[in-house]
Write a protein that binds this DNA or RNA. Sequence first.
DNA 1: TCGCTTTTAATGTATATACATAAAATGAGG
DNA 2: CCTCATTTTATGTATATACATTAAAAGCGA
Lengths: 239, 239
Amino acid sequence: MKIALHERIRQDFESRILSGELAPGDRLPIEQDIMAHYGCARMTVNKALSALLAAGLIERRKKAGTFVARPKVHSMILDVPDIAAQVRERGQDYGFRSLAHAVRQPGAGAEEERLLAGQGALMQVDGLHQANGVPLCVEYRLVSVAAVPDIVDADLHTMAPGTWLLRHVPWTEAETRISAVPAGAAEASHLHLPVGTACLSVERWTWRGAERITYVRQIFPGDAYDMVARFGPSAAAAR
Amino acid sequence: MKIALHERIRQDFESRILSGELAPGDRLPIEQDIMAHYGCARMTVNKALSALLAAGLIERRKKAGTFVARPKVHSMILDVPDIAAQVRERGQDYGFRSLAHAVRQPGAGAEEERLLAGQGALMQVDGLHQANGVPLCVEYRLVSVAAVPDIVDADLHTMAPGTWLLRHVPWTEAETRISAVPAGAAEASHLHLPVGTACLSVERWTWRGAERITYVRQIFPGDAYDMVARFGPSAAAAR
DNA sequence: TCGCTTTTAATGTATATACATAAAATGAGG
DNA sequence: CCTCATTTTATGTATATACATTAAAAGCGA
């Protein structure tokens, strides 16, 4: 496959930076020299360097030149796969068992509803994700009925509500919070663990524009689930 | 402050997408119409749209047009800031107390060394991150002496080794694993917790090219530290 | 209606040019 | 040697233009 010249220039510098050949603080050649080296116009070089700038790999100062950036935060891609897809990927049978399934009127329930900030009625859908019949994760979910009217009639007894939502609802933003919690009585019983066992809690708020769609809280036994994040070329490769 | 036109166009569309006014799948105007609307050249529009494309907010197909991208669940940006920087951001005093500091010869230690896969001598640097004097996190770290010779003479008793590495070691690739573990005897004592308390374990392997740099394992009390991942504005806002 | 070719409308890439802007480097005056 | 104005240099932005590339859409013949 033929790749664009500006893309090739970008990759060249990216790999020289990632390999350490160009260390943080090092100065890159000026645009004039780069364009002479590749035999192209300055705009082409500029496009390549602009991309590296947007990716945070370089810093540029007028008159001074272009420098390899010193990384500040590790901003990395976090893989949070759909549980059902992940289980099937391992060649196991995926199952979802419904634990609770009800529409709750606003104001009726107490604190959970604040999580979706009073957008009218909420559908509560709790359940258990299973791999080969073994409980893997307890899930507590609230869905805004106003934002997703179809949820009321959806068959969520076998299909995980997360999977259903993914297919039916477009969303634009999500926030995920990861923390460690001890297993409560309910989780302990469903996951067959002693009460107090260290578990991973993954909470996610999802919304579209200003409208909240869903809040979900998933509890995994600590040793059953690893979340893996990568930094580096993956960020570029993922696109 | 005066902002560039291509940047203004980019922001205009970004906010329309993030607000939900332009929903996933919606089609954007063609470049010709946008350039007519802003009264500028096509290259300027193209620059704005290229940035949105790189950020993953839109998809483009020749002849068909430009469309708001449907976000995929599984890849979101995870910001894992330097602990010291994060503590100071909250207006607290950051402190690091060294717990162990020694060079270990290859083969001497057992399993930890496999984590850096026998690249010669390793520097072991364990310590305690503190916020306002209160223990926040226990850190166990191994650094390859071959990859980072300067580490031997670095003063790591007050500065966190992570911070030191960030400043001295060129760009890296990293893989992070997050899980939940019960507090062991050592962590319990350092963090003033009962043994068995649910803790968040963050492990990270870092390398440059094929060379392994460091392995670190950080143990946080489950309720003291939340990792937050966002999809959407974060990618752009982080810059 | 099916399947093939042709047209066309959109993005993709690249160039040459122009002027703006900011900051480092220089140099004159004290 | 210091200070301040001037020059120089590298990046920042924008334009007008040209041609390439694709895939949708239209046309057409069997």
